[in-house]
Structures are given as structure tokens and as C-alpha cells.
């Protein structure tokens, strides 16, 4: 009991200092399960994002600083919980060992050992970082609240500010939320966000061009498809599609009015257990009627793995 309390106090202090001053430290790992007592995934976990690098290795992040990992295709999950860590929104791995997560309050963590231990990266901002995408083992991007866009070229040690600025006062950030970022290759990238915000770069992020969205409603997820195509999804079940490398966008017919949060071919996932499937590379979408995730809010999808509320982690067939 005593040692547990000391561990508590120590970890509290650690978090207080580490989380807010950019000091590097190791995350402490909890044993996966003690005699069946502690399950890795709790029924009240709210999970935000998933990333699989192959059929076996995958990582999931969620609220309360939750990081889950599997090395056997999801048969067993191991929980790494760093006490006091804030919500983690996005996870991206460039190899089986190297990956990053981003979260609220500007948190970015890095791992070199497939997620067993995590270290704090340099903290680019205090704003929430909703999405991260690394184009190689050193260059990556994070986007988030108040139009923040940051780029690193040293694996997260230092960050360069590309944030959106207000039209009226260029010193102030534009108060638009950026929800997702996806690179087709190191030169071409896409960011989507609030009020139909679509940003496109064709010069490795040196400049970001605003693209007109067809209806101006909020977007939560985007992805590249084959043949220079792109898809973005958002509120009220809207699906936007571009076939010219993201320069022009068209609203597609959607089978749902539920909010859609994430897209990764052949799936789009969203609120109330919504799962949409395409057979033709994204030209048409239909709803999965068999409710594989019940009514959980599904917020992330990667390689047919979906995650969401109520501890939902599931592979779709």
C-alpha cells in the first residue's frame, strides 16, 4: 500500500514536471494483466485512433493517456498507461518499432521500441494536437486546435511553425480547428478541419493552399486513394471526393446522416456504430447493416481495424 502511494506521488510529480516542461522521461509500463485481474481494454475506454503497420503489429490511443499495443494481430493487447497523461488523439508508425502519438495540450510522444516505452518529444505548442502524420522516420507533421500546423525534421526534437494566421491580424492564430492530416508522399499533403477547411500542399509543406469545399461544413477525416484521388468525411454523413489530387472537391451521395470521423479505404467510420464500405475504391459507399460494433462511436480506422467508444477495438472482415 505504502509503496503504491509513493509510486502515486512520484508519478504525480513526474507528470506535473514532465508534461508541462519539455523534459524527456521514460513512461512507466504497467504489467499487461495480473492473474486475469486487470484487462487491457476497459469497457469505458474512449479510443481515438489506431495504426497497424502489418497484419500483426498495431497500436491504439485514447482518452486518459491510454496506449494499447498488439504484436499478434490483436489477439492480446498490452496497455501502457502513463499516469496523468492527457488524452491521446493520433498515432502513426513508420516502421514496426518507430512511432509517434499526439494528444491534448500539445503532447507528442515517441517510441523506438514498438511502443514498450515512450519518451516526450519537444512540445511544439500548448494547443490540442488532433492528428499526426510522419512521411519518413524523421519528417512529420502535427495539426490541431486554433489552426496549428507544425513540422519536424528530426523525429520530434524541434518543430517549425506553419500555423494558419488570422486574415485581419497575422500575428494571431486563426481559430479554426484542424482535424486530420494525410500525406500521399513527402511533397503532397492534405489537411481538413472545421467549416469545410481543406488545405493542400504540393511543395512538401512550404506553402499550404486553401481549397474551397462544396458546402462549408466541418470535416473530420481525410485520406488519399489510388490514382491521385482523395476522400474527406465529416458532419451529417458528408463524403467529399477529389479525383485531381485534391484541387477540386465534390460532395458524394451518402448513405447516412450520422457524423463520420475517419476514413481508410475501404472503410468510413462514424457516430452510432456507422460503418460504410466501398467495393470500387471509393466511388460508391454503402452501409454495413450487421452492426459489427453495435452502436459505439467509431473514431478511428486503419487497415480494417476500427476503434471507438466503450473500449471498441475490432477488425472488420
Amino acid at each position: 500500500m505504502k509503496s503504491a502511494r509513493i509510486a502515486f506521488i512520484v508519478s504525480e510529480c513526474l507528470v506535473a514536471t514532465l508534461c508541462y516542461c519539455t523534459v524527456t522521461a521514460c513512461g512507466n509500463e504497467k504489467p499487461p494483466s495480473k492473474g486475469g485481474e486487470a484487462q487491457a481494454i476497459h469497457s469505458n475506454d474512449l479510443l481515438y485512433d489506431v495504426c497497424f503497420t502489418g497484419p500483426d503489429r498495431g497500436w491504439v490511443v485514447g482518452s486518459g493517456g491510454c496506449i494499447l499495443r498488439t504484436a499478434d494481430g490483436g489477439q492480446t493487447w498490452i496497455r501502457t498507461a502513463v499516469e496523468g497523461l492527457p488524452a491521446l488523439y493520433s498515432v502513426d508508425f513508420v516502421s514496426d518499432r518507430r512511432g509517434w502519438v499526439s494528444g491534448s495540450d500539445g503532447t507528442v510522444l515517441r517510441t523506438e521500441d514498438a511502443g514498450a516505452t515512450w519518451t516526450f518529444c519537444g512540445r511544439p505548442t500548448s494547443k490540442h494536437l488532433f492528428a499526426t502524420d510522419f512521411v519518413n522516420s524523421s519528417t512529420g507533421w502535427v495539426v490541431g486546435h486554433d489552426g496549428v500546423i507544425y513540422e519536424t525534421r528530426d523525429g520530434g526534437g524541434t518543430w517549425k511553425d506553419h500555423s494558419l494566421r488570422s486574415e485581419r491580424d497575422r500575428s494571431l492564430p486563426e481559430e479554426v480547428i484542424l482535424n486530420d492530416i494525410a500525406f500521399l508522399h513527402p511533397d503532397r499533403g492534405l489537411i481538413v478541419g472545421e467549416y469545410g477547411t481543406i488545405l493542400l500542399t504540393r511543395d512538401a509543406g512550404r506553402s499550404w493552399k486553401r481549397i474551397r469545399s462544396p458546402n462549408g461544413t466541418s470535416l473530420f477525416g481525410c485520406t488519399w486513394t489510388s490514382g491521385n484521388g482523395a476522400i474527406a468525411v465529416g458532419i451529417d454523413g458528408q463524403i467529399l471526393r477529389s479525383t485531381d489530387g485534391g484541387v477540386t472537391w465534390k460532395a458524394m451521395k451518402s448513405p447516412t446522416t450520422n457524423t463520420l470521423f475517419s476514413v481508410s479505404l475501404p472503410w468510413i467510420v462514424g457516430n452510432r456504430g456507422t460503418i460504410l464500405h466501398t467495393d470500387d475504391g471509393g466511388e460508391s459507399w454503402r452501409r454495413r447493416e450487421d452492426r459489427p460494433v453495435n452502436f459505439a462511436l467509431v473514431s478511428g480506422v486503419s487497415r480494417s481495424w476500427v476503434v471507438g467508444s466503450q473500449g471498441t477495438v475490432k477488425h472488420l472482415d
Binding site: 490540442h128 488532433f130 458532419i235 471507438g308
Partner: peptide, 10 residues
């Protein structure tokens, strides 16, 4: 308030 985005469950 944030359009039902679960990331704002904060």
C-alpha cells in the same frame, strides 16, 4: 458544443 467530436470529451 464542438459538433459532437469525441476528441472534445475533455
Amino acid at each position: 458544443m464542438r459538433e459532437g467530436d469525441p476528441k472534445w470529451f475533455l
